[in-house]
Nucleic acid binder design. Structure first.
Length: 248
DNA sequence: ATGGTGGCTGGGCCA
């Protein structure tokens, strides 16, 4: 968030979303640029730890009932990976799901545990009949059509069955991958590795998701991945995913 | 596709 403040500010000014969910701020809790965001018209809430992880929610339509980490009663995570808030009557959550690293790595076990606790967090704090959006970097490509080449992902994280099943368990709370309401195409990606010219080769994955409850899905009218944001100077390796939700 | 780039730092880790 520090290195890309100019890009984020420019993008906010041009795109003017009502709400923005940010992951991997890599900032200590109190170093988030709340003032710079306020100058652009956005309230902001940040859950940070510095150096790694960190999640935030920006809103110009209200920001209340902010919750850091999982709800009380659920095993708290040691890292700053989820923040929840209510914006314009919608409960929104900004999630940075653990990467997993390797299938036989402890971090992969942590990834599955984290997703299980995300489901617990949903069960504990809201209902499927509420307006809920759970968004962020899930580090999971839901289906094979969401990666550039399945053969390149054999025995790799992001596509394995256990993590996809864990994501399904999250969705079975009553959430839907909003992108697929509007787009059936394969090879539409939200992340490309910095290395090896992946972006220019089209070697990407769709791992950034906006999951929503049915009342939000019904009001959704449009979605897109802003891949232009992956271009230019000092881009993030992720592109923003946009969802338009009509007023009640 | 066992390297490669980028950002945190201030050497090495993480993605």
């Amino acid at each position: 968030m520090k290195a890309r403040l100019p890009r984020v500010s420019e993008w906010l000014s041009e795109t003017q979303p009502d709400v923005l969910l940010i992951q991997e701020t890599k900032l200590k809790q109190d170093l988030f640029p709340h003032d710079a965001m306020a100058e652009l018209g956005y309230e902001s809430a940040h859950f940070g730890q510095g150096q790694w992880n960190g999640v935030a929610i920006l809103s110009r339509v209200g920001l209340s009932d902010v919750q850091l980490n999982f709800a009380p009663g659920i095993e708290q995570d040691g890292e700053a990976r989820i923040i929840s808030a209510t914006c314009a009557g919608i409960r929104v959550m900004s999630c940075y799901v653990p990467n997993g690293r390797e299938l036989d790595h402890d971090h992969y076990v942590y990834k599955l545990s984290w997703l299980n606790r995300l489901r617990q967090h949903l069960d504990a704090t809201c209902s499927a009949s509420d307006d809920v959006i759970v968004g962020g970097d899930f580090n999971i490509a839901p289906e094979d059509r969401d990666v550039w080449d399945v053969k390149a992902f054999e025995n790799a994280t992001h596509v394995s069955k256990p993590e996809r099943d864990a994501l399904k368990q999250v969705c079975e709370f009553g959430l839907e991958d909003t992108f697929r309401k509007f787009h059936d195409e394969d090879s539409l990606f939200s992340w490309w590795d910095y290395r090896g010219g992946s972006f220019h080769k089209g070697h990407g994955m769709r791992i950034d998701l906006l999951l929503a409850t049915s009342s939000v899905v019904e009001r959704s009218t449009w979605t897109a991945i802003d891949r232009n944001a992956r271009k230019g100077e000092q881009p993030s390796d992720h592109a923003p995913v946009l969802l338009r939700v009509s007023d009640v």
